[in-house]
């Protein structure tokens, strides 16, 4: 078996375990390449049957329009249920403070919406596209990651996970986050997209875009949420996105990649990690991701 076949087989096995073990699972779908791969894997795992779970999108309100369009078209095309819950509504309902500052990110706020939607539908398992190569706290997380009734991850109390035997038993109110592509790297994802000819939103490929350069040298898209000031210089660059998230904390990278093959060559040549290149939210502190996960982040 080729390594991509092995990774694919492992992911399908995990998805079917979720179907077999849980009453009310959900697939967290962001419109990013990792969750698009999850949908592709779910098609392989369950067709000609329906998915045993809906797609759930926590919409920060800071999404790229191309990604939202892609999301709706995909759900429509495969005929699966899509549930969208907006961070905007959570902010109003819970009277939360919206993101502030130059780049008013809602990355932290989406945890509230996620926990609310889990409670609303009583989801007992949430499938996510997180990968262990992304970040060092994620590298420590199990494939079946049990969260308490507050959605919290306790890294010191993880269940041993042995062989391919997944223990998804939980008490009412608790839930399990399941990461079928834990063992995939960014490059594996792209090689898989190439092999399976998976179509992606256009912002993953090179395009011209007006950006400002941050003090870390990152290229930030100009949009209605980012506060421009007199020191900002607007540059028009050929860019693409390596990750797709809240557009106030996701940077673009310079790129001339028109095709998946071009992207694979660029990733092989790059010296900077995926999150290092694109995420402002990890730069807050050394344990930023660990702290967010302990607070219920996916």
């Amino acid at each position: 078996m080729d390594y991509l076949d092995q990774l694919e087989a492992e992911a399908i096995y995990i998805l079917r375990e979720v179907a077999g073990q849980f009453d009310r699972p959900a697939l967290l779908f962001s419109g990013g390449k990792d969750s698009i791969c999850l949908v592709h894997l779910a098609l392989k795992a369950f067709r000609p049957g329906k998915f045993p779970f809906p797609l759930v999108h926590v919409d920060t309100g800071h999404n790229f329009q191309e990604v939202l369009d892609y999301r709706d078209e995909l759900a429509d095309e495969i005929g699966e249920k899509l549930i969208v819950r907006k961070v905007e509504d959570t902010i109003l309902k819970r009277n939360l403070q919206d993101g502030k500052g130059k780049f008013p990110s809602r990355n932290g706020l989406q945890t509230y919406t996620l926990l609310d939607v889990i409670e609303e539908f009583e989801f007992d398992a949430c499938i996510g596209g997180a990968r262990r190569d992304e970040e060092k706290a994620r590298a420590k997380e199990r494939i079946f990651s049990v969260r308490d009734e507050f959605g919290q991850w306790d890294p010191k109390k993880q269940r041993p996970e042995i062989w391919d035997i997944y223990n998804g038993r939980i008490d009412k109110g608790e839930n399990v986050r399941v990461f079928p592509i834990s063992n995939w790297t960014e490059l594996d994802v792209w090689n898989y997209i190439k092999r399976e000819k998976i179509v992606l939103p256009a912002i993953y490929f090179t395009h011209k875009r007006d950006c400002i350069v941050t003090e870390n040298g990152q290229l930030m898209n100009i949009n209605e949420f980012v506060q421009l000031d007199e020191n900002d210089t607007i540059v028009n660059k050929n860019v693409r996105y390596r990750t797709v998230g809240d557009m106030t904390c996701t940077a673009a990278v310079e790129s001339v990649a028109f095709t998946v093959d071009d992207i694979i060559s660029e990733i092989k040549a790059t010296k900077i990690s995926e999150r290092g290149a694109t995420r402002m939210d990890d730069r807050v502190s050394e344990a930023a991701m660990e702290d967010r996960k302990k607070g219920g982040y996916f």
């Binding site: 262990r132 994620r138 420590k140 890294p155 010191k156 790297t185 660990e290």
Partner: peptide
């Protein structure tokens, strides 16, 4: 590089399994 948790960095020990990945021309390693 592999001690990804705050407590591990503080104590300088490995508490839990960390998974790392690398690829050479010949193989992918987990």
């Amino acid at each position: 590089l592999t001690d990804g948790l705050r407590a591990e960095r503080e104590q300088g020990i490995t508490i839990d399994v960390a998974y790392k990945y690398f690829t050479t021309d010949k193989r992918k390693f987990i």
